[in-house]
C-alpha cells in the first residue's frame, strides 16, 4: 500500500541523464520551468515537450513510471481544467453553450488544453529529476548551488544536512510504518473500511508508535553525530566533489536554446487564443 507513494522514487539505471551533475539538472529544471511559463502558444509547449521526451528517452526511464507521476496530480489538473472550461471569460469569445453563470467558449476549451499541457509538462519534468537523481546527490547539488548565500550568514550547510537526513529517513520511516501497520493488522486493526472519521481513528495506533520511534531515532542519530565530533559545516571537506563535464555544458546550451526558442515563438507566432 505504501509502495505507491512516489517519493524518493529514484530509478537506478545507467544513463546519460543519470550521470549529469545534480546542479546541472537542478538548473536545467529551473530553466525548463521558466521556458514553460514563457511559452504563450502550443508551438512553445511542443518544443518543451520534445526536449522533455528526448530526455526521458535518454534517461531510459520506462513510460509507466512517468504515467504514475502524472496520476498524482490528476485531480489538480482536472480541477483546473474544469474551472477554466466553465468560467473562461474574454471579449469576443465564441460561445458554444451557456447556462446561468456557466459558459463554455471555444477559446476557453483551447486555453484549458493549454493549461493541462503546461501542468503535465511541469510535473513530468520534476519527477524526471527525482527519478534520475539520488536524494543524496540532489542535496549535494542544492547545497552547492546555495553556497553564495553563506555570504549573508545563511546556514546553507545545516539546511542541506536537514534535507539529507529527512530524505534519508523517509524510506526507514516508511518501512517502520509498514511494520507497525502489519503488527496492528495482526491485532485486527482495519485501515481499509469505514468512513473518513473511522479511518482517521484507525491510524492512531500507527501514528503513536511511529512518532515514538522517530523521536528515538532522532535521539540516537544526535548521539552518534556527537560521538563523532560533528560540529557543523566549517572546514568540512567533501568525499565526492561535484564537477561539471562536457555533457553538463551541452545541457546549459540546450537550456539557453530552449528559452531563446520559446521567447522567439512567443513574439512571432502569437497566443493560442
Amino acid at each position: 500500500m505504501l509502495k505507491d507513494v512516489s517519493f524518493g522514487q529514484y530509478y537506478p539505471v545507467e544513463s546519460f541523464v543519470h550521470r549529469l551533475d545534480p546542479r546541472t539538472k537542478l538548473l536545467f529544471v529551473i530553466a525548463y520551468i521558466a521556458a514553460i511559463f514563457l511559452s504563450k502558444n502550443f508551438y512553445g509547449l511542443a518544443a518543451c515537450a520534445a526536449v522533455l521526451f528526448a530526455a526521458i528517452g535518454f534517461a531510459k526511464i520506462p513510460l509507466r513510471k512517468i504515467v504514475r507521476s502524472m496520476k498524482g496530480v490528476l485531480f489538480l489538473v482536472v480541477f483546473t481544467a474544469v474551472i477554466n472550461i466553465f468560467f473562461y471569460r474574454s471579449e469576443g469569445a465564441r460561445i458554444l453553450w451557456e447556462w446561468k453563470i456557466f459558459r463554455i467558449t471555444a477559446e476557453g476549451l483551447i486555453f484549458s488544453g493549454f493549461l493541462i499541457a503546461r501542468l503535465f509538462l511541469l510535473v513530468i519534468c520534476a519527477s524526471l529529476l527525482t527519478l534520475t537523481t539520488t536524494p543524496v546527490s540532489l542535496t549535494d547539488g542544492v547545497e552547492s548551488l546555495l553556497t553564495p548565500l553563506k555570504w549573508v550568514r545563511f546556514p546553507v550547510h545545516e539546511l542541506a544536512l536537514i534535507m539529507s537526513i529527512a530524505l534519508r529517513f523517509i524510506p526507514i520511516l516508511m518501512d517502520e510504518t509498514d511494520r507497525i501497520m502489519n503488527a496492528q493488522k495482526a491485532r485486527g486493526a482495519d485501515f481499509e473500511t469505514g468512513g473518513p472519521i473511522r479511518r482517521i481513528r484507525a491510524i492512531i495506533p500507527v501514528i503513536i508508535p511511529l512518532l515514538l520511534s522517530a523521536f528515538r531515532r532522532a535521539d540516537e542519530l544526535g548521539d552518534a553525530m556527537d560521538a563523532r565530533c560533528y560540529t557543523g559545516g566549517k572546514n568540512r571537506t567533501k568525499y565526492k566533489k561535484l564537477r561539471f563535464a562536457a555533457g553538463d555544458f551541452a545541457m546549459f546550451v540546450l537550456a539557453a536554446a530552449l528559452i531563446a526558442g520559446v521567447v522567439l515563438m512567443r513574439i512571432y507566432l502569437g497566443a493560442p487564443v
Binding site: 502489519n182 503488527a183 496492528q184 495482526a186 485486527g188 495506533p205 508508535p209
Partner: peptide
C-alpha cells in the same frame, strides 16, 4: 496470533488495559 519482532514498539494506548483490549475489541 502473530507477535512481530520487538513487539513492544507497537504499543500505543494510554493504559496497559486499553492496549491489550485493542485486539479483543477488534
Amino acid at each position: 496470533g502473530t507477535v512481530f519482532q520487538y513487539p513492544e514498539y507497537q504499543l500505543f494506548a494510554e493504559t496497559v488495559f486499553e492496549d491489550v483490549a485493542f485486539g479483543y475489541r477488534n
